[in-house]
Design a binder for these strands. Structure first.
Lengths: 157, 157
DNA sequence: TGAAATAAAGAATAATATTCTTCATATATT
DNA sequence: AATATATGAAGAATATTATTCTTTATTTCA
């Protein structure tokens, strides 16, 4: 059967989701262990899929990608094939970084990141509105972002 | 003055935001260079803040954090101190992974990640609704997620 | 044209990851 | 209870990789 995570595992995950450049030695010291068991645990967490990947987090604004927009969308047709087609199309747009099917006032909530308002308008006109079965579309333009992280709270697992 | 990014820099960033565990050697080979200039460029990108950090991306569901909720919020008071206080409070909740001030039908859009619906209800009752000046609150419960990434499109920079 | 700065290469070194063997502890089985 | 089996950690040895340093070519600018 599958093993659940023990305290040490969640501590390692908590450390690595904050900073994956930590050496096994420094993690081991923090946990009062030697490097080999820490190393083996990390490899296990990777192999079993608890850790999906390691990535560099970029400063979007500094790079010139300054605008984040959330877009709530309803579709006119709700058959399975419509939904699948829509999701497939959406996932192919590099501007879209998130696509969630939701319950509530919309069918989908998208998160989009682009250079500026012009690029956003271009996306809407030349990509989004060309999708079939599109119903209501409501945009929330981000003015400022107070918090934006991937870190999940492992303290009570 | 500040340097802008050349083609090689953006290629390096594109590689590292996909997989930050790549060795400088493998990146250098892909770009047809040797390790030292690649290494120096990476250090420069880190030092100048284009790369903010390196993190492990975890599989939330596997760890037992299965529910993502987006919450649109309006506040009753719009003075500067209200907003700042609200943002500060929100940022201290570990369940909240994103907090954006937006224009449109809401003042703020929050992204929340918790174990399950019960944990969500607990959050609403014991944390969110205790905040002062809270106006309208609308939740979008995520049913499924088609795409969820941090990768920004560097192809046309 | 010449001097200074920039970027790359290649070699040398230091640090770290990774593997392997051994030991201790816990768990299960009879 | 006694023995076998599995699990996890330690420590040393090795392989890889990161990092530094020196040299050279190329570009930039006065």
């Amino acid at each position: 059967m599958a093993h659940s995570l023990d305290k040490i595992d969640t501590q390692i995950l908590a450390i690595l989701q904050k900073n994956s450049n930590r050496t096994t030695k420094s993690i081991a010291e923090e946990l009062g262990m030697t490097t080999s068991p820490v190393f083996e645990r990390i490899k296990k967490l990777e192999k079993e899929g608890y850790i999906k990947k390691y990535v560099a987090v970029l400063d979007n604004k500094k790079i010139g990608i300054k605008l984040t927009v959330f877009i709530g969308i309803t579709l006119q047709g709700h058959t399975r094939s419509y939904l699948e087609k829509f999701v497939t199309e959406i996932n192919n747009f590099p501007e879209i970084v998130e696509c969630h099917r939701v319950s509530g006032n919309f069918d989908y909530l998208l998160k989009l990141i682009v250079e500026d308002i012009e690029a956003y308008e271009t996306f809407i006109i030349s990509k989004l509105t060309l999708l079939p079965y599109l119903g209501n579309v409501q945009s929330l333009i981000t003015l400022s972002t107070g918090k934006e992280t991937n870190e999940i709270d492992l303290s009570r697992i």
